[in-house]
Amino acid sequence: MKNILFALIVLSYSSIFSQTQIETFFVNGVCGMCKDRIEKSCIKVEGIKMVNWNLDNRQIKVIYNKKKIDLPQIHSFIASIGHDTDMITASEKSYNSLDECCKYRDENIVIDHKKKGINNN
């Protein structure tokens, strides 16, 4: 047990040297629910290690293992859940699957969110 534990600890430290790719790009969205959807969906994708989508500037930061996934695949995944990226526009079908309050292509909804100052929900 003791030796397994110590091997585990030493092994964990080796992840300091692991290879990761970091990318930041634009993903369209409008509210906290969008943030939830984008982050929770992406993190479950094999190869993606960390996601953070910033509601204020609509930039996403993705850290991923480039041996398992590449950047175009990440863009197309995000588009597949209904969010436009600066590379791929989501299909009408996936866009329509978004909740009403998340319809970022609708001017009125965007203005509405800004008015209410709802950032989180």
Partner: peptide, 17 residues
Amino acid sequence: VYNSIIGDTRHKIKTGF
């Protein structure tokens, strides 16, 4: 103490001496 993840940020580890 060293903090990191296994796979993605849903799995975190904290380890040390």
